[in-house]
Simulated scan of single mutants.
Amino acid sequence: MLFLLRMLLMGLHFMLAGVLGVLVGLCRPFNPDNSRLCARLYALPAMWILRLNVKADVDSLRNKPGTCVIIANHQSNYDLFVFGNVVPYRTVCIAKKSLKWVPLFGQLFWLAGNVLIDRGNAHKARRAMLTTTHTLQHENTSIWVFPEGTRNLGKGLLPFKKGAFHMAIAAGVPIVQVCVSNYVTHIQLNRWNSGDVLIRSLPPIPTVGMTADDIPALMQACHAQMEACIVEMGRELQSPATIELPSS
């Protein structure tokens, strides 16, 4: 019964947040800080409805070194609500073009200045990547990417795609890694307190002086660091010391 009630409230919240987000986008279209504001619109009420206890240790994200490419693990559609708590100032996201047609959310996403990529068209995808390089270098705007390219459904970190690393090296900006603990297979939405979630950012990795030849090693290093961080957060959540987490 509690699960069904939560799903009903989440559906209503999703629509209401979409309406408010579209209004924000219409008032100041394509402002790169719309993403942060809209992320909070979705995340803060959702955490209350779902009763997820989120603890964020993301100083290197909040105090990021100017513009950067932010990479994060991608578990499920709930990432919108979980990561929405920590999206920093002037940060836009890269996502598949088909999101544009999701009622309210798609229009909000577009008006927020996010980058929509047609993954089925290599030429358009490359052109979009060139646009992001200009954004990183000249518009004081960071870009959030899920380098796995799809949801891993809590089954472990998938192999990374090269796009985010190409962008960072082309623009000469650091990479900031953001990790969220495995929550998809652990949350229990039929209980009053659904579960605990940890979010952690890692120190920035500079890319100045790197070339395309450095991408494989850079991808491997980031994957290994994020995987280790996710495993460590899983251990912490199993410890009694992390049973009570403040709500972010």
Rank of each mutant, 00 (worst) to 15 (best):
A125Q: 10
V58E: 03
A170S: 11
I70P: 08
N121W: 00
R119C: 04
G18A: 05
A39Q: 06
R127G: 13
P246E: 08
S247T: 03
S98I: 12
D118V: 08
A56C: 08
Q188N: 13
L9V: 06
F105R: 07
R191D: 15
F146P: 12
L198M: 04
H134W: 10
N193P: 01
D59G: 11
V54Q: 07
T132H: 03
V115E: 13
V145G: 00
R28K: 15
G156D: 07
L198G: 04
L26A: 04
L8T: 12
R36L: 10
T133N: 02
L2G: 11
H223C: 03
I243P: 10
V87D: 11
R235C: 02
H186Y: 04
L237Y: 10
N190K: 13
L41K: 05
L16P: 07
T185H: 15
M1N: 14
M10S: 02
N193Q: 15
R127T: 14
Q225H: 03
L37I: 15
L9Y: 06
V208K: 15
N77V: 11
I243T: 14
G120F: 13
R51L: 06
A46G: 05
V87Y: 13
V173D: 07
T185G: 14
T132P: 00
V87K: 04
I143T: 08
T133C: 03
N53G: 05
R200H: 15
A164N: 12
M219L: 07
P103I: 13
V24S: 04
V19Y: 08
L9I: 05
G234E: 10
I205A: 03
K55N: 06
I169G: 11
Q220V: 01
G154F: 04
R119A: 03
R126G: 03
R36D: 01
P32K: 08
F109K: 01
R191H: 15
G156H: 01
N53A: 03
V197F: 09
